[in-house]
Write a protein that binds this DNA or RNA. Structure first.
Lengths: 245, 245
DNA sequence: CGTCTCATTGATCCGCCTCAATAGCTGTGG
DNA sequence: CCACAGCTATTGAGGCGGATCAATGAGACG
């Protein structure tokens, strides 16, 4: 289901939680408001290989970016959430490299390339934001690629749960929800849903975390989990959370 | 070995093969010349976690970007070659997310963040180049992540060899060289060197390609190889080769 | 000629996939 | 209210792909 492109009216979202430093912010917020629209759970924004040239700025909710093989196997490349600015277009600039789907109801601004190009040159503050966001995206994708290639199932799961916690800004010990099934998490980590189940159960049984009610996560032993994930939560935060300069 | 940062003198490289469209090109070439320097095979430009904030523009030769686990396992995130512009910095902007090493002798420009920021705003042509390059990088990394997560060893090897051929612009049937050992290719594909060996031998025995003299590749049956890789060479070219608009 | 690195091949093992069955939960209609 | 369907989670059994360990070639180089 391709979402339509008519402007949407939002009176109730002020200000949008994706902001730019300095004087450029007002203009940026205006543009965002102009292109922002609701996205409903399960909706497909674009398909791998389909025509697409716009930028997507996530205001609220979760999106998944995925690719698939003709065997039917799906690999989720990344999740995008509040504040992420993603360009699904591939090198030719007019084709989507990934399928973008909504994991939850949410809102996103879809900004045409002409407007985007214009903004980039006119708003230096936006350029900084974009660079910071892109560095964060690269860093977290690299971190995952490392574990996808060389890590055990346990390490992948531990790292993913820590990453979600960091990105959601959830304090340790607090419950946070990730809006996906074990199947989806498996598609993200290159594992079968069955093995996701076994792995999370094992972590739960050893008292490191609790998983309740369809993916409500509570980390009980952050240090243990971090050790399994092969990372340090503080370092991870610095590495993958965009920081505007 | 950290390379030094004193300017280097090049009289013999004109023009640099990393060019920008339009009137900005001259300025860009000047800046490149100012920061370009030779890199020798085996040299380490930066280490994962070390201080780093510069951009790297590859003029000639191959670089590898890698991360490693404390088990000693290494995952190569990407190779950078002629024309690639890579930012190894993570989200904090001052730490390298990856280790950057030279696989061959070559030349690269290392551009300080202040200069880079300045260039971005002053040279719109450069901004376009960067966006195109980044889209290409994202697309090829996504393509690999898919196979890293869901593909067989055979598919990963086939895809990597096709990707190298495309990036090197090697016509089908022609020999091209990839400057790495089977171990390095394994670190790239998430496979052991032993399994790289078995897989390439199997492909060679079935007449799909030839591998001679330490990674001189010759694809004999491009269609077969593409089928195994789960891709179409033309589509791959469009998707992962940067095209300036 | 000895050493070093890299490629190749065999043997064995194990982590994860696949298939399959059951259980729990939610919503729907009679 | 229960019966049922549909989806997700859980657990077991068996198989396979790729890792690991180990030994032998094969060049390259001093």
């Amino acid at each position: 289901m391709q979402i339509n492109r008519t402007p949407w009216h939002f009176d109730h979202i002020f200000p949008l939680p994706v902001s730019v430093q300095g004087a450029d912010d007002q203009k940026w917020q205006e543009v965002l408001l102009q292109y922002v629209r609701p996205v409903s759970k399960g909706a497909t924004l674009t398909l791998e290989g389909a025509p697409w040239d716009a930028m997507i700025c996530v205001v609220d909710g979760w999106l998944s970016l995925s690719k698939s093989l003709d065997t039917g196997h799906v690999q989720i490349i990344d999740f995008a959430m509040q504040g992420d600015i993603v360009g699904p277009a591939s090198a030719d600039g007019v084709t989507s490299a990934v399928t973008v789907e909504a994991l939850t109801d949410g809102t996103a601004a879809i900004i045409p390339p002409a407007v985007w190009h214009c903004l980039q040159t006119q708003l230096p503050g936006l350029a900084s934001l974009v660079q910071a966001t892109e560095a964060a995206i690269r860093a977290r994708r690299a971190e995952r690629a490392l574990r996808l290639g060389k890590g055990s199932a346990e390490m992948r799961v531990a790292h993913a749960l820590l990453e979600f916690g960091v990105r959601l800004n959830a304090p340790f010990g607090q419950v946070y929800h990730i809006p996906m099934t074990q199947q989806t998490l498996g598609d993200f980590l290159g594992l079968s849903s069955v093995h996701i189940c076994r792995t999370t159960r094992r972590l739960a049984r050893s008292g490191i975390l609790e998983v309740t009610d369809h993916m409500d996560i509570r980390v009980l032993q952050p240090a243990e989990l971090a050790k399994i994930a092969g990372t340090d939560p503080e370092a991870l935060r610095r590495e993958i959370l965009p920081m505007q300069t």
